[in-house]
Design a protein around this nucleic acid. Structure first.
Lengths: 254, 254
DNA sequence: CGCCAGCTTGACCGAGATCAAATGGTGTGG
DNA sequence: CCACACCATTTGATCTCGGTCAAGCTGGCG
């Protein structure tokens, strides 16, 4: 069936439907978007900073990080992207990439040409609206990321990231107590705005406090309550408008 | 004339036209949006964190900061908004405010109801597109902010902020060597993710190096080259697509 | 078996935080 | 026009979290 076809955009539609209302016509049109599957090995930069892109990247499987760079080449990861995410959807209206993209593990990407997405957005304003809303959730996550990196201490920053991923990987609904997370400590450091060494020490502390165990390829949460407490994690910004009654559609006719 | 009327949205149109192509009809429709002028005194929170909003806020004059909060009430400023900005345009598709809004000085705001903006976006897809593009520029600035706060040291963070504001206040075109900036050192600290005391010392260093002089209500840049160097400031993310030839319109008919 | 990347640990350092006090500017009331 | 209050700025002294440097350790893989 279509849902298990790895080159199918059904998961993207599911993602959109969690927050927007779309008609069967519109859904069909999205599923009919031309896609070009690409396999990318782990640790590969596939979009450079300031590169002009010509397609959006849907993540069918694997995991991707968006990052910025300082002059001396240090990286700051600004977002993790998981299967179901349409990365660079923003590039449809603003083709200059904000930051680069790199794979955290072997990843299957479905490239979708801007031209096709644009044609779709023109024909179906409600789809354009759903796209806009989707990019706004990314922006909300990003704002929280600034607060996390700017004002929290090491353990809090890390705990926050593990909480955020537990929610997002759980489909915004269930909280995954255990999940795959192919991120090295060095990468975690780039995300949290600290050094690898200190990530290591902080993870050790979190482990010894019985909150969470992090290995190279997995996260196991032992005490969600206290982890969320430590990470000052409020899920509101991620889930506040995902309820069915809260889904929105500006256009008349529902 | 309309341009000098403080309750007119012409500056908003100008802002949009710098990046998007709009027809005279569409421009007229934007200018016809109902606005409700509000005077807000400085240092006033006028949107709370997680508040559900029902209108967007155009800044006619003054200055506004968006912020997030930690549990103990510390604030992290995630964006400065200047005259001409339509703050919370994102709230049209996602009414839960991402962070609160506070005034940095006496500010004149024109409230525009979501309902009116929605009606406009439905009727004119190209306007919706321009709105989306505008919010994406905010997101790009935000991403840069994460890099700045996460990976740079004190002087660099501050220098970056002064460079960014010099460009933005200069209308993305000229670089203002001197501008009003009604931001206390304490607020600057909240933006840069550091303490007021250290902001003070860092400003002193920047001043003694002959880069920039910052007072309570103004910034005076003495050496743009070296300030940009110190701030690791690349204006690309702000101006890359403002050139006339780069303005975009997805819809056919240009 | 031996290599190499990533993880772990230790010792030391330093940027920036914290605490505390003095200074300076500005608006208000006498 | 001065006195005072209030705030932001400035400066000093001290502390600490996290950075830096360096050395093992571990485990997957050719």
């Amino acid at each position: 069936m279509s849902r298990s076809d790895p080159t199918n955009l059904q998961p993207f539609v599911d993602r959109l439907l969690a927050r927007s209302v779309l008609t069967p016509d519109e859904i069909q049109a999205i599923l009919a978007l031309p896609v070009h599957p690409v396999e990318v090995r782990g640790q590969t930069d596939f979009v450079q900073v300031n590169e002009k892109t010509s397609c959006a990247c849907f993540i069918a499987s694997g995991m991707v990080a968006r990052f910025g760079e300082t002059r001396d080449g240090q990286r700051q990861i600004t977002a993790f992207h998981i299967p179901g995410d349409m990365v660079d959807l923003n590039s449809v209206v603003r083709p200059i990439a904000v930051g680069g993209l790199t794979t955290l593990c072997n990843t299957t990407i479905l490239e979708v040409p801007h031209t096709a997405i644009r044609a779709l957005a023109v024909r179906y304003p409600a789809v354009a609206e759903a796209f806009w809303r989707d990019t706004m959730l990314d922006a909300a996550i990003l704002m929280q990321w600034v607060v996390n990196v700017g004002k929290q201490r090491a353990k809090t920053r890390l705990a926050h990231i593990f909480c955020e991923m537990a929610i997002r990987l759980g489909g915004d609904r269930q909280i995954l107590q255990e999940y795959d997370f192919p991120v090295s400590q060095e990468r975690l450091a780039e995300a949290a705005g600290m050094t690898g060494v200190h990530v290591n020490r902080s993870l050790k502390a979190l482990r010894e406090e019985g909150l969470v165990t992090v290995k190279r390829y997995s996260v196991k949460i032992h005490d969600w309550q206290r982890l969320a407490q430590t990470g000052e994690f409020e899920a509101d910004y991620l889930v506040a408008d995902t309820g069915t009654d809260r889904r929105a559609r500006l256009l008349a006719g529902d």
